[in-house]
Design a binder for these strands. Sequence first.
DNA 1: GCGACAG
DNA 2: ATCTTGTCGC
Length: 247
Amino acid sequence: MEVARPEFRPDAAASREEMEATQREIAASAVFEDRFDFDPARAGRPEGPLVAGVDQAFLDDRVVSVVVVLRGDTVVERARSVSPTAFPYVPGLLSFREGGPILDAFEALDTRPDLVLFDGSGRIHFRQAGLATHMGVALDVPAVGVAKSLLCGRPVAPTDELAEGARVAVEANGRVDAPNGTVIGYAVQTRQFDSYRINPLYVSPGHRVSAETAADVALACRGGYKLPEPTRLADQYADEVKRSLGD
DNA sequence: GCGACAG
DNA sequence: ATCTTGTCGC
């Protein structure tokens, strides 16, 4: 798969100011509404769209980035990249640490997914340009951010005690570069038990997907675990590749 | 100065 | 993200 917008390939050597300026450009190019031709209701279904999951694993000073493409529960293709870590983890600048390796993995992928799920935020970001947004715009592919914790924004209601399948909107607050009250994502309960509480996932639009649809597909791709299958399998594969490198 | 902070 | 055994409870 090709990088549609090479100018947005993450530059780990840029200054923090340049990175933030790039994020504002990306946010301006991002489309936070549904703009695709497949049926989102069929995501995760046998004859449904091709959905990919992306995740990373780290080993010393190297990054393993993988992409796993699924149709229903069948793995269609997997691709990977292994490269030296070029930038540290800085809240708000995650795509400059993992973005390069991710694009490398996509360039080694033959399949063009209909939708891609990333392990991190999309619009739930200070400048509305999280990892899923940056990658979605660079690849010009429908993208969704699936994070395990909230970077910024405020849930409009308590998110503990949510029933499986339920969701609570996350609105922009003072820390987000968007009008207060703008729905930038959803806290989504993909898995829940009667006895102990499981924290929700924080799902947000990356590119070409609305906040509602992002939450819909995260739920549609469930496979019995907290993480949607595409992301869960990517997580698993990244660990597998990492171990094969010596550990 | 203090708190917040995806992976 | 990563370091890590057992252990309590569905």
